[in-house]
Design a protein around this nucleic acid. Structure first.
Lengths: 181, 181
DNA sequence: CAATGCCTATCTTCCGATAGGTAGGTTAGA
DNA sequence: TCTAACCTACCTATCGGAAGATAGGCATTG
């Protein structure tokens, strides 16, 4: 697979942001890892905010694709929940990184406005999917959608800092129990 | 003057960190708000990491005090849960800021080691309290402790970035329903 | 007299951003 | 088909500013 320079920049930047947030993004560090000079990044992304937005957009788009595939491949709500959970477990156990939009949401107060909006979209997309594909028709569908997403983001946070998979594992266990009796 | 310089530094720094995380802390900005020079902060806190640890320690200590008072003033688990929930609701509606340790946990990968440990302690304290004061004796006490804390941290995150109290409110509503039948 | 708590001045390092240059490829007109 | 114009994707060099940190000085206080 051949990656373009732009794709490489976004890929490297995403991993960096998922480790330390927006302020941890450094043009020089990204450039070094990609194999170009920091000034060249400005050719593809005029400002740091533009780069941030691009990362968030790609991250959300990739998530949306996986959600669509999930709804396509399984009709049972319990299977869909399992697939949804797997997205967060993968972030922790495979990428060993936070959810990009989770970490950006935490520091959203000080983000450029365009990036703030891009992060918002991620959460709206997720809530909408949970609402429509997982809790459709249920009386408290919206609340349950918030609940699942919030508990997974929070559990990811806790597992990262506590350096053990236990929080996310336990939260997943209860999600499986409580949502579908 | 009621507050010492050290207390003022920590107070200002906490608010700053709760808005944008560790990297958003700036000695110069803190100094300006406190009314001293940035070099003077180094007299009280040798390094930025030391200041970060001090913030986290005070934040955790204050939380512990509130938890102790909570356990003292109410014996009913449902009342204790209500009081616990209130701590997070207050962060959102009164302070209009993230939980300090929530935002630091998100970027824990790149934090100084001492600060990382200080943030860990916050979560351990919370889990221990939930486990002992709220779910004592229940078969899945540990899992439920993780679950409550994770969902509240995540909901806070979501409410911040979505700029609406709805996520936290809805999560609280379900917590009240699901935890005590 | 010495410790405390601040100050000024300055250091190095890193940051995002800009200006201007260049090699190589594509396009368009005579 | 030759060539002038242009575009793409980088480069070097440099800017102003902000970052944390340090050295040394100067009052106030006990």
């Amino acid at each position: 697979m051949v990656y373009s320079t732009v794709e490489k920049i976004i890929e490297v930047a995403e991993l960096q942001a998922r480790a330390g947030g927006y302020n941890a993004l450094s043009f020089r560090v990204i450039a070094k890892q990609v194999g170009i000079k920091s000034a060249s990044i400005h050719y593809h992304f005029a400002t740091k905010a533009d780069l941030g937005v691009a990362i968030a957009h790609r991250y959300t788009a990739r998530f949306e694709q996986q959600l669509a595939k999930l709804a396509e491949n399984s009709t049972q709500p319990s299977d869909r929940l399992e697939g949804y959970i797997a997205l967060f477990v993968q972030a922790l156990t495979v990428d060993k990184k936070m959810c990009l939009c989770g970490i950006l949401a935490a520091e959203s107060d000080l983000l450029p406005e365009a990036l703030q909006r891009a992060v918002q979209v991620f959460f709206e997309v997720n809530v909408a999917w949970l609402h429509g594909a997982l809790f459709a028709g249920q009386p408290q569908a919206k609340a349950q959608a918030f609940f699942v997403l919030a508990s997974l983001e929070g559990a990811l946070l806790m597992s990262k800092v506590m350096q053990t998979d236990a929080p996310l594992e336990q939260v997943c266990k209860l999600l499986r129990q409580d949502c579908w009796q």
